[in-house]
Design a protein around this nucleic acid. Structure first.
Length: 378
RNA sequence: GGGGGUGCGCCGGAGUUGGAGAGCCGGGCCAGACUGUAAAUCUGGUGACUACGUCUGAGUAGGUUCGAGUCCUACCACCCCCA
């Protein structure tokens, strides 16, 4: 079957939309948040918790990390990442473009591709648009990403421009190689191109127009949430969304806080991923619809109320703040596990509510009421 | 009862051959950071006060000395050995 995106509802007061992306591994109702599972695991969370408690519809993997360990050959022997980690719903793999940014001191960028020294054993590896497509074919994600350069912030105009053009040339090679190769496991894979251009409007416009020219299933916005002010994030996202085709899902890479999600949904973004809910969970920060709580704080010591009494997921209703604080204070593994389930379930609840309000037609009012609460610190 | 040893931070260690400690390391405690995961990680604070400075502080109380956490005396506490 052919992967396709159905637009189901448009908000009247904003660019928010609700839709459904159909894949070989099931449907994804948008707007959606995708838990990050870099190394074939959403850290600390079981697959059955992802489905039952969190209601995740799609998760991420990372090309660079999976290529280094367990290695592409093992994933191929397993029959792809779905078989390897036992997740039979959709998967998206990032290309390693973010590692071009985050491992910048370990890589060299050339026109051909990026040379990395492994953060695990120091060994040298060359990533090219072509072999990144091959690796992602072998990993077997439903959605795969173009190999790009995620520029840092701040980034000089001259560099941002040069980098964007290289990302465009790399995209052309990705696209060509992707179309010359077949999926290995009998189901369709979709390649999403990525808009770059740092925080420069003319570059973002040019990049979005280039990306819009591809006959892709969906499109991505990269190079944001790398340290720039929120106004820049919103301005660039708004601009790019106004150019990217309406009938295709828009994926804003690496974003963000709960408030970021709602603001960017209002600008027309359909898909998000971010390490915040899981990383911050391991670092004791819990998100709720009333604000965020640092569970290490002494003030929760004797608060025997549930993490969230209204939550749909049982984990957030069952465990108390005092108990979770104790777990973090004692460095017990269960603390990060509970917090990870809670935060992911909250993120999925949040985008699910957004979807409901978009369909109901009162998204903007709801969003404006939610955002100040989400930004609070309890 | 006799002999020997050790005492400073909330705790455990290190160090101090009489020469400038609010002071080393680790833990605890209190906060903060984290946005396509080199992150179950990292950063800061943790005597008092009238607070960019000042004061107090090495078991307690005295003493010697220009100068004592360091030497001396007594007492207290803990540990070891003997009875």
């Amino acid at each position: 079957m052919k992967m396709k995106f159905d637009l189901e509802a448009n908000d009247v007061n904003s660019s928010a939309r609700a839709g459904c992306l159909h894949t070989a591994h099931g449907k994804i109702q948008t707007p959606i948040f995708m838990p990050v599972g870099t190394v074939a695991t959403v850290k600390g969370v079981h697959q059955h918790e992802l489905t039952d408690d969190i209601k995740a519809q799609i998760i991420l993997g990372n090309t660079y990390h999976l290529y280094l360990r367990p290695g592409t050959d093992i994933l191929e022997q397993a029959g792809g990442l779905h078989k390897f980690n036992g997740w039979d719903k959709p998967i998206l793999t990032d290309s390693g473009g973010y590692q071009v940014f985050s491992l910048s001191h370990r890589r060299k960028i050339k026109e051909e591709g990026a040379t990395f020294s492994s953060h695990i054993d120091g060994s040298k590896h060359l990533f090219t648009p072509e072999n990144v497509m091959d690796i992602q074919r072998k990993i077997g994600a439903d959605i795969i990403m173009a190999f790009d350069e995620c520029t840092p912030y701040p980034c000089e105009y001259k560099y941002a421009k040069r980098s964007m053009h290289m990302t465009h040339r790399w995209l052309k090679r990705c696209w060509s190689h992707f179309n010359q190769t077949e999926p290995l496991y009998g189901y369709e894979q979709a390649l999403f191109p990525i808009v770059q251009g740092s925080v420069y409007k003319d570059l973002r416009r040019q990049s979005a127009e280039t990306i819009a020219g591809y006959d892709s299933v969906g499109n991505a916005i990269g190079g944001l949430s790398v340290g720039e002010p929120h106004e820049d994030l919103y301005e660039m996202t708004d601009l790019v969304c106004s150019i990217l085709p309406k009938e295709k899902p828009r994926y804003l890479m690496g974003v963000g806080t709960p408030a970021n999600l709602l603001e960017c949904i209002a600008l027309g973004v359909d898909m998000f991923d971010c390490v915040l809910p899981t990383r911050n969970a391991r670092h004791a920060l819990i998100y709720t619809k009333e604000g965020a709580m640092n569970m290490k704080n002494a003030k929760w010591k004797a608060d025997f109320s549930p993490l969230d009494p209204d939550a749909a997921n049982p984990t957030s209703r069952f465990y108390t703040k005092a108990y979770v604080r104790h777990l973090f204070a004692s460095k017990e593994l269960l603390g990060p596990q509970i917090a990870s389930i809670h935060n992911l379930a909250f993120y999925l609840w949040l985008v699910g509510e957004a979807r409901k309000h978009i369909i109901a037609g009162d998204f903007t009012a709801w969003k404006n009421e939610m955002v100040p609460k989400l930004n609070r610190r309890l």
